[in-house]
Amino acid sequence: MTFDLTTLSLGLGLAGLCCFLWPILQRINGNPQPQERSGLRSPLWWAGLVLTALAVYLQRMAAQ
């Protein structure tokens, strides 16, 4: 099974989206995160941002 850049970028984009949505799903389920770990200071938020940016970059490389 071979993976090309498009498949890799879609996987990274999905992982980035999951990093963004995880805190929202936790709050919906009634398990709020501590206030000091939420928002822009959250390592999960930064991981989501980096993974999404990497996915966009790889998608542009695959389109060329």
Results as ranks from 00 to 15, higher is better:
Pro34Met: 05
Ala53Lys: 01
Leu51Ala: 03
Gln64Asn: 13
Ala63Ser: 11
Leu12Pro: 13
Pro34His: 03
Gly30Asp: 04
Leu12Asp: 11
Arg41Ser: 13
Thr52Gly: 07
Glu36Thr: 10
Val56Glu: 11
Thr6Met: 15
Leu44Asp: 09
Leu8Thr: 07
Phe3His: 07
Gln26Asp: 13
Leu25Ala: 10
Gln64Phe: 06
Gly11Phe: 04
Pro34Ala: 03
Leu14Ser: 08
Ala15Thr: 00
Tyr57Asp: 14
Ile28Lys: 14
Pro43Asp: 02
Ala47Trp: 04
Ser38Lys: 15
Arg37Met: 12
Gln64Trp: 10
Trp45Leu: 10
Gln59Thr: 09
Phe3Gly: 01
Cys19Tyr: 04
Gly16Thr: 09
Asn31Leu: 14
Gly13Cys: 05
Pro23Cys: 01
Leu51Gln: 04
Arg60Tyr: 08
Leu5Lys: 08
Met1Tyr: 13
Thr6Lys: 15
Gly39Glu: 03
Ala53Ser: 07
Ala63Asn: 13
Thr52Cys: 00
Ile24Asp: 02
Pro23Lys: 00
Arg37Lys: 14
Cys19Pro: 00
Asn31Pro: 14
Leu40Gly: 15
Tyr57Gln: 14
Trp46Pro: 09
Trp45Arg: 15
Leu21Tyr: 11
Leu44Trp: 10
Gln35Ser: 13
Cys19His: 02
Thr7His: 06
Gly39Leu: 01
Gly39Ser: 07
Met61Arg: 13
Leu49Gln: 07
Trp22Lys: 01
Phe3Tyr: 12
Trp46His: 15
Pro23Gly: 04
Arg37Pro: 07
Phe20Thr: 09
Leu10Gln: 09
Ala47Gln: 01
Leu8Glu: 10
Pro32Cys: 05
Ser42Glu: 07
Arg60Ser: 06
Ser38Ala: 15
Gly11Glu: 02
Met1Gln: 13
Ala53Phe: 06
Gln35Val: 09
Gly39Arg: 08
Phe20Cys: 12
Leu40Ala: 14
Phe3Ile: 02
Pro34Phe: 01
Leu54Gly: 07
Asn29Gln: 14
Cys18Asn: 06
Ala63Gln: 12
Ser38Glu: 15
Ala15Val: 01
Gly39Val: 05
Trp22Cys: 04
Glu36Val: 07
Ser9Asp: 01
Gln35Pro: 11
Gly30Phe: 02
Ala62Ser: 11
Leu40Phe: 15
Ala55Arg: 06
Arg41Lys: 12
Gly39Trp: 07
Arg27Asp: 08
Ala55Cys: 01
